[in-house]
Design a protein around this nucleic acid. Sequence first.
DNA 1: CACGGATCCTGATGGC
DNA 2: TGCCATCAGGATCCGT
Length: 271
Amino acid sequence: MPELPEVEVTRLSFVNQISGAKVLSARLGKPLRWSLGCPENDLVGRTVLDVRRRGKYLLLDLDEGLLLIHLGMSGSLIFAQQLSPDGAHDHFAMVTSRGTLRLHDPRRFGAVVHATHEDDPMARKLLGRLGVEPLSDSFVLPQFQARLKTRNTAIKQVLLAGDVVVGVGNIYASEALFLAGIRPTAKAAKLSGPRIAKLHAAIRDVLARAVATGGSTLRDFSSANGESGYFQLEAMVYAREGQACRVCGSAVKAIKQGQRSTFYCPSCQKR
DNA sequence: CACGGATCCTGATGGC
DNA sequence: TGCCATCAGGATCCGT
C-alpha cells in the first residue's frame, strides 16, 4: 500500500510533534509480520528523538534504541492527542507525553520492531539489503546502470525488489516506466545507457512529485494527521486497463508479473 | 548471487 | 441475499 511517498508524507506529518516526547505506555494487539521483540514495558520512559525513513521503513530514534515501523500493504499511522478507542485492526499503540501513535493495519503485513541500534541483527535483517534512496544524492546514474547490468529479469521486477533502489512500489513502478517509455517486461540488463538515464530521472520525478503533492494517488491513504489522501497526481497507466493513454490515446494494457499487476501503454512503451 | 513462486492476512468487489 | 473466486499499495523465505 504505502510506497515511499506515502511513508515520507506520514513521517513529515508527525515528526515535529513526536520529537522530544516521552513514552508513557505501549501496547501490541494481534501479531504483525514482526512484533517488537521486547516487552512493551521496555519502551516506557524512552524519549523519541527523531523520525527518519529508510525505504518504506520509518525509524523512530529513541534515547536508547530505536523502533522500526513498516506499514506493509494496508497499514497507516495516526498520531494525535485525542484518539477514539483502539479498533479491531489497531495493532500497536504508543501513548506519549505529546500524543498517541497508533498503527492501523487490517492485513497485518506491517511490522513494529525494537532494535538496540541500527546494527543489531534484526535491524540488519530488515534494512541490510536495501538499495539506494532514490531521492538522495547517492542515487547516481553510473551505479544504477551497473546494478541493472547484473539483472537478467524484467525491469519492473527489479524495481519492486528494492535491492537496487528502494521505495518504488507497484504503482510507482508502472508510472516511472511509463514516464521513461520503457516496457515493464524489458530485461534490465539489456537497457541502453540513455534509457536507463531516462528511468533514473523518471523515478526521481514521479516520487518527488508524489511527496510534494502530499502523497499520491492512493484511494484510502491518509497521513498521520488524519488528513485523507487527495488525488492530486493522476496515474498515467496504473489501474487504467482498457482506458485511453493520456499521451497517445492507445488502450492501456494490464499484465501480471510475479503475481502483481503491471500497467503500460503498448504504444508509448514499445520495448 | 540471482531467479521464480509460495506465503503471511483481511476486506472489497464482482459473478452467479 | 449468500457463496465463491479474485484481487489489493509488500517483501521475505525457500528451492533451484
